[in-house]
Design a protein around this nucleic acid. Structure first.
Lengths: 229, 229, 229, 229
DNA sequence: TATGAATGAGTCTTCATTCAT
DNA sequence: TATGAATGAAGACTCATTCAT
């Protein structure tokens, strides 16, 4: 691996050491995400994160000033940075707003909710007393953009005459509450109760929830109801 | 049950000191509830709890084996013991199931959600990694009874023809998610963001949420909705 | 020892535990002084201090908030608190001011310079970069009072016509410099060079220094010189 | 000695890079001196020294085995090597010994005391616990030569009948103490107290000190003293 | 020669819990 | 019952030094 053809220039950053430098942060963030979600933020020792990423304690602090910083980066790369893509997908979506909501939540579940990243929300809640700045960062970089995106979807429905002119921010929260809830549930009750947790399937709950919300939102609820009866 | 007026018990506390002895656990639990909610569980030192209750550190451990034990007792006396009363109120309720839902959530908000006890849910979530047993206990003594109570209400609505025959457990969760959400929100985002948190009023959100859910639940949605009455 | 006659009241703080509480701070300060002077402040681990005082690490922090705090207390009790007594001795001194100076420095050498406390000055110098507040504290609680006391002595000499009307603050510094010097020397050069340090006796240097300050080097300094020729 | 104009040495550095190679140690030493004095020895990270000298961390360790080595070299090149020149100046001095003392201290102040090199003494004191060898080295290569030089001056005064036949080594120390004192003071108290440190001017103190040493405090010291002339 | 990524030893402080009184 | 002095485990972060390139 370190014997790449030395054809081109004599000082190309090809060496193992060089390549690691670019890969390290991502490896550390991945290790941190897994361990934080698995054991909690405070309960995870920074040395464990380093060890799982295959480096020593000191190396971790070469890339992240503090453990809190690492946490912030995990949130940024695993949650906050997704919004740009989502907003673009929103722009090009064709179809009914009801479908949009279902597709949106389904996609979110696949990409976030049902992945380790879904555990971050609970971590932020758990550590908000100890690390208020993290909670603040999460609020501004994840919650606000998320609410804004959902609000645009609901307004699209209202503008197109698909939905009633309900209080959009409140309705957004009705959706957010379900998303937060399934993430929290998965990493609390399920993690503790184990097997009999099968009486609650997050994705099917999300779809039922959207169903309920949409029926509640519909401008002409009578016709469409049979679709999901 | 042990909090009945002390008329017929076998230990009538005559002396002042005697009375303190019996009151101690309650005073400690109250102090613990307030401090845990205010500062978080791990951030609250046992000595602080003792001090607020007016006793010394050692005395706290005379009544509760560990800090975790104290936490469990707080949950039991401040949350779990409420369900008996609620179930009785449910039996005698007269009126539409929609009213019942609104009244129920409103009452819950006044008695639990908007009191320090409402902060316990977030504490349980936050500490579930450290104390899975407490999460389990909360699940069986608070969540399950709560879900059962809400399920009975929804089934009442369906039986009386007021609601569609939706998936009851899922719909219950749609309600639970909002309740959990407002409690969590109050003690996380609001606590951190401060003033501009005024864009979210928990009670009005709850009512909006019920509104949305009920519209989604209604058997004949077209007639009933004076949209924002 | 713990079986003292239980005659008087039943709750006298006679017990071993009680008595220790009052003795502990002093024991810890003594242990800290010895170790700090012996090994340096930073090089002394707090656990060592505790161990030398015969207690555990935690106990140290029961009496002193931080290691820096402990340092400050060492300075206060071993240096700063002496000034009151010295000022009283100054008031009642009878005799020539030259004698006063000699007696003062001699006393200082016996009580401070030649004891472990004499090592504190060098510690303060050494740690002034890391703990500027300590240097500040030392400056205001030791240096300033010390300079003030010496200034009063010199002014007494001037007022009584024994001394020339020299620049008092500067002359004070000439004395201070020697005091600081002998303390520093003892704990630096001597500590490192070992045996051949015998070419420098601090006390006799101090006396020679006073002699020089009072009489100067000049070959024809009038009448008074013969006194100490 | 090795800093003579590079005329006749056997290694004439032709290329620019070649010149850098030879200049490196000096640049690193200069950077180290400045930073050590400014921030203290242990508070200065090796990387900072390298950075200020315009090289990378690794390069520093190419020229100096350890940080302690670098410290030793700073002392050698910036202090120890001055004595040769001073001794030559001593030989050719014309004038009274009192003038010689004044001139000597004044020169020392300009060339050492008032330059970054003056901070080295305090560094040696501060780090003597950690690096006793350095203190030893300083003692033999700076203190002893310094004392010897001052002793020769005093003895000149005695031989020429200008001074009393005092104990020369002790009197030397009286001068040394002031020199050490002003260097220490500048880099400790002043660095911490800031502005109001203006009540102490090192050079004027040095001159006052020489005045006192030479003339003494006495009120009637005969003809010789044009008191503040 | 020069670089800079990687290493890992070392320490203060908190606080739940105990137990002598 | 009540006290409060004492215990001791546990973990983040720095930086001199190395060595692969």
């Amino acid at each position: 691996m370190s014997n790449l053809p030395s054809i081109s220039t004599d000082r190309v950053p090809t060496a193992r050491r060089e390549r690691r430098k670019e890969a390290r942060p991502g490896e550390l963030i991945q290790a941190a995400l897994d361990l934080f979600v698995e054991k909690g933020f405070s309960a995870t020792r920074s040395e464990e994160v380093a060890a799982r990423a295959g480096v020593s304690k000191g190396t971790l602090f070469l890339y992240f000033q503090t453990k809190e910083d690492l946490f912030r980066e995990v949130i940024r790369t695993r949650l906050a940075d997704h919004f740009l893509a989502w907003e673009q997908e929103f722009e090009v979506f064709q179809g009914s707003t009801e479908d949009m909501l279902r597709t949106g939540l389904h996609t979110w579940w696949d990409r976030i909710g049902n992945t380790p990243a879904g555990g971050l929300t609970k971590l932020v809640l758990s550590e908000s007393h100890h690390f208020p700045e993290i909670a603040s960062y999460y609020q501004s970089s994840v919650v606000q953009p998320g609410r804004a995106l959902l609000a645009r979807i609901l307004m699209r429905g209202i503008e197109r005459g698909e939905f009633r002119a309900v209080d959009v921010p409140q309705a957004v929260m009705s959706l957010v509450s379900a998303m937060v809830f399934v993430m929290t549930w998965r990493h609390t009750i399920v993690a503790c109760s184990g097997p009999h947790a099968t009486d609650f399937d997050p994705l099917s709950f999300l779809m039922s929830h959207v169903d309920l919300i949409v029926h509640g939102l519909q401008a002409h609820p009578s016709r469409s109801a049979p679709l999901h009866g």
